[in-house]
Design a protein around this nucleic acid. Sequence first.
RNA 1: GGGAACGUCGUCUAGCUUGGUAUGAUACUAGUCUGGGGGACUAGUGGUCGCAGGUUCAAAUCCUGCCGUUCCCA
Length: 480
Amino acid sequence: MSKEKVGITVSKKDDFSEWYTQVVLKAKLADYAPVKGLIVLRPDGYSIWESLKNTFDKKFSKNGIRNGFLPVLIPESLLGKEQKHFAGFNPEVFWVTHSGENEVGDRLALRPTSETLAYTLYSKWIKSWRDLPLKINFWNTALRAEIKATKPFLRTSEFLWQEGHTVHATEKEAKDEVITILDIYKNTVEEELAIPVITGKKSEKEKFVGAVYTTTMESIMPDGKALQMGTSHFLGQNFSKPFEVKFADKDNVEHFAWQTSWGISWRLIGAMIMVHGDDKGLVLPPKVAPIQVVIVPIYNQDEDKKRVWEKTEEIKNQLESKSIRVHIDDRNELSPGYKFNDWEMKGIPLRIEIGPKDIQKQKIVLAKRYNKEKIDLDFKEIEKINSILNEIQTKMLEIARDQAKLNTFDISNYSEFKERIGKGGFVEAYWCGKQECEDKIKEETGADIRVISFENENKDGNCVYCNETSIEVPIFARGY
RNA sequence: GGGAACGUCGUCUAGCUUGGUAUGAUACUAGUCUGGGGGACUAGUGGUCGCAGGUUCAAAUCCUGCCGUUCCCA
């Protein structure tokens, strides 16, 4: 009875939503804050974010992008400078109306996104073609008041993200940058988080307000709902004109610049939990796990204890010399069984059990989190753990790919389409390109166009809704 | 956008209908024994019942408002 209450109390299959929340809270990734819609990131959660941040920073840096920092307050007059953009964000903006007791003149927005602020400054900094390209990334938070029910990492009124803003002399260069970034996003998510994504364009309706077009990466979650994993926007000159981001070209003629913006958020952590987790809790891909190997020493009498400890320390040193993140669970008050369950809930990829019996056999017991497999490993084979971690990382991506495939459907008939959407999943279907059909589909099924995959553009067929000649094959799904 | 439920030690919860300052478990602390899948025993610590008003001799309980959380349906 009491046993049941410690761990996750519902199965992923039976009550996905409850399961998800329990994993977040019980694996100590995050907790609710005392303000509606806000969460607190705890060290185990933040560590995953830091790991992603480090990987992105390396890749951004290679691409000539540097980090900067922007303030959180944006005056209303600035935020409203690009009309469509403002209209899109206005309903969810938090406003600061007072400083101390005094009302402020121009209301101050807590940034929902920083385009307007960044480009005001960019216009000051850019004078000549020699100042281009300008590529700056900002790690910060954005605030968007959520009316709908919130969920840790997936929908919160403040979220951690990065927003990149680049400026280019030519249209082509900016468009290329959009794709370069999307590629970085895709390979990072697949390689680090072991989550497969589909990249492509958003429809006109779903694009970022103010962009010429939006590229996106989308994933399908185990409950059949789609999750937007990151976006990269081609802004064209939509912002450079109102914000006067201009430069003198080599021929001394003044031009408006071409711009991009792009971002990923801590939603990626939510996706990782959903895609890999199981009934025992979190399952972390080795690359982002704060602890990769946990050692649980087992002993009874003092004599054994000493020997076990010596070996434990030795293994720890061996692994650390290979740059593996190791932790010894030296909590004396807990039984081994409790510790096994505890670390499984936290998703640590590998667990080493070592006790008197193992020392006698010159072996350790190695338990893999993702498939619950337990194997014996000779003391001499400790260095194999490195390749086992790599293998786990690869396998986890493979499994996730297989799952995603099972959740993807090719459908041409509308009644089938409706039925399928009701059950969840990515549905590929022909589309005429008219927003009217897109709206009707949304109205009747709740599904929207998640992504028009780069691989599926310009295919012939008949629109799943109106039956007219199609121009694209988007992926439809209900989303988070 | 519409609907429903819930809020009591850290966590889960009894009590609420029929008002009388709160039950149990778990966690936590100390000690002893244990130790290979959520250990045992003993002794302790911890709440004033989401917040603010109201009714009453008396409110966790009844009333009003607010805040928060969750779930379901477009």
